[in-house]
Design a protein around this nucleic acid. Sequence first.
DNA 1: CCATTCGCTGACAACGTTGTACGTTTTAAA
DNA 2: TTTAAAACGTACAACGTTGTCAGCGAATGG
Lengths: 346, 346
Amino acid sequence: MNRSSSHSGGRPQPATMKDVARVAGVALKTVSRVVNDEPGVSPPVRKKVKAVIAELGYRRNDNARVLRIGTTHSIGFICEDLGEPFVSQLIRAIESVSIENSSMLIVAATGGDLEREQEAVRALASRQVDGLIIAPTAHEQPYLGRELGNGLPVVFVDRPSLHHQVDAVLTDNHAGAQMATRQLLQYGHRRIAFFSNADQLFTQVERIDGYRQALSAEGAPFDEALVCSASGNPGATLASLQKMLALAEPVTAAITGDSLCTYALLRAFKAVGRHLPLIGFDDFPLADLLEPGISVIEQNPFDIGRVATQLLFRRIAGDTSPPQTIKLGTRLIQRGSGEVGLPINS
Amino acid sequence: MNRSSSHSGGRPQPATMKDVARVAGVALKTVSRVVNDEPGVSPPVRKKVKAVIAELGYRRNDNARVLRIGTTHSIGFICEDLGEPFVSQLIRAIESVSIENSSMLIVAATGGDLEREQEAVRALASRQVDGLIIAPTAHEQPYLGRELGNGLPVVFVDRPSLHHQVDAVLTDNHAGAQMATRQLLQYGHRRIAFFSNADQLFTQVERIDGYRQALSAEGAPFDEALVCSASGNPGATLASLQKMLALAEPVTAAITGDSLCTYALLRAFKAVGRHLPLIGFDDFPLADLLEPGISVIEQNPFDIGRVATQLLFRRIAGDTSPPQTIKLGTRLIQRGSGEVGLPINS
DNA sequence: CCATTCGCTGACAACGTTGTACGTTTTAAA
DNA sequence: TTTAAAACGTACAACGTTGTCAGCGAATGG
């Protein structure tokens, strides 16, 4: 059979070490030594082998290698949607740290479906990834026990695992929301709305909780009527806003749970012809160019990814200290030259 | 040695088919048949084997499988920066089509370094990916010959390969820029600037070329002084803009080469206190909420990724028709209620 | 001159899986 | 009952690589 590189139709069979050995007239193991830069091969033989390798276009088959060696030098990343800006920065960081540790990155999206999440974990585990980074969809990962039991290192990002003792790297959502709320309270606001898009989502729950806690710490009443939890939908956001403005004690400021909510609320502001002081979770491009500029609580997805991946590689290297949860701080970026602090009704 | 799942310290050895066979008291191949749902195993035996699999937490080792079967069911994606919004949508599409074809996606970033690009191709090829999607950094891929010779299917996205006969899926940058230019010309503009961020980049070259061609088709002179090619840098953009405004025949409208340029130019507008009619390449969130709304030429990175990946899987399936270049159209999104069409100097 | 070391090379088994070939038992048809 | 075929089960070799060990000649030491 033709095992050479370029000529003849069909998909040519790539050359193997055996082929190289045969053509070079040496033993298989000698080729292996040359390929892996191992000592014990005389310069002339080494040169000859290298020439044949180039001639045949030989490339080492890492799958066979893995079978022998045991480690794949690859990690997996599982999330809901690879297209989100937050995830995009996560991936960038994960890949970058991964390459530093000479590993490759396999990504998988679940679309928020728990079954696909399980399927992804199964597939990645079958491929013998050295470790897994998961931005989980749900609170529970019933399928994860087997993998953890098999010793697969796993780090959660953005959201924790509630039922497994696993490393997690999260944003300090609670503190971030508190910071935003306190800021608005400090400028005299008492009727602060919270626009969230999914009130069962961990990050959103934490943020609403921080908001709530900051309110009560300042003696401001928490009002269910000032919480909108369908803010992914622009229509629902507008309706909510109108309702809140029509209250006996109308809303005077707002916090949004993520950038989609911020977008939706900004559109609602435009629709009602009125702009309220607003602090949004997540920074977004051009936030400073809008009139007024939008203040935000900035998370740092790149850092989350970086820290998580570094932790993962420590686990892969054998670190068996107890699982830890790392919370990364947020930053309040004030924009709009004090808009946030405008007195009520201005 | 302990090959069971959970107890005992250290990293436990995962169970193998051999272990399952031994514990279940059947032959290796019988376990293989059960695992792969092949016929030829009686229900009681099948049940017994499944029970042992669950008991030992056995999981098939796909690397060994690959060695036998030959196909890894994985594809690779190589780009400059995994964090770009454009790339993010590409990945989303590629992963999605990949999963439909029961393949996983391995991603690699090059940071624009040709050597790392080569390294990534080498690594992915060594891992025996079934195919490769590349958003190339440079015009040349000197290293690619070996892989193509070895029969590795490759599809380029966003930018073509100039020296290899390879499939490519691109945006019709030329037509998009022409469309934008014609639109501005139609409203009477003759002094249209082009703000690009890298004039040697394929996409930017194409766009400038389209712009240039549309100008000359309408008898409008092309003026080197109206082209800024360092527009990634906000400072340079501002300086350019000021220079263009100070010309004897000053600029009256602008086209930007990508969203970063758009951002930079918008900031420059703000800095000089003057807003020119603008059509930007690439849509961006909130473009409609700015005052005035920003018109854009919209590309569709998701479609590019989808089409490219579908093409790749056709190649993987054995399609040997000649390499093709697919250009996807753009769409002009008009915003700002006619701002684009405002007469000069309004 | 023999014994020992050293540098180089090769034969072979193993990694975990699947395809092939061939037994053995059960079932159905003659 | 006999015969054929189906159903079930097993043994073995291969996929491409690397670790182990042994062999060989030459150089070194006594």
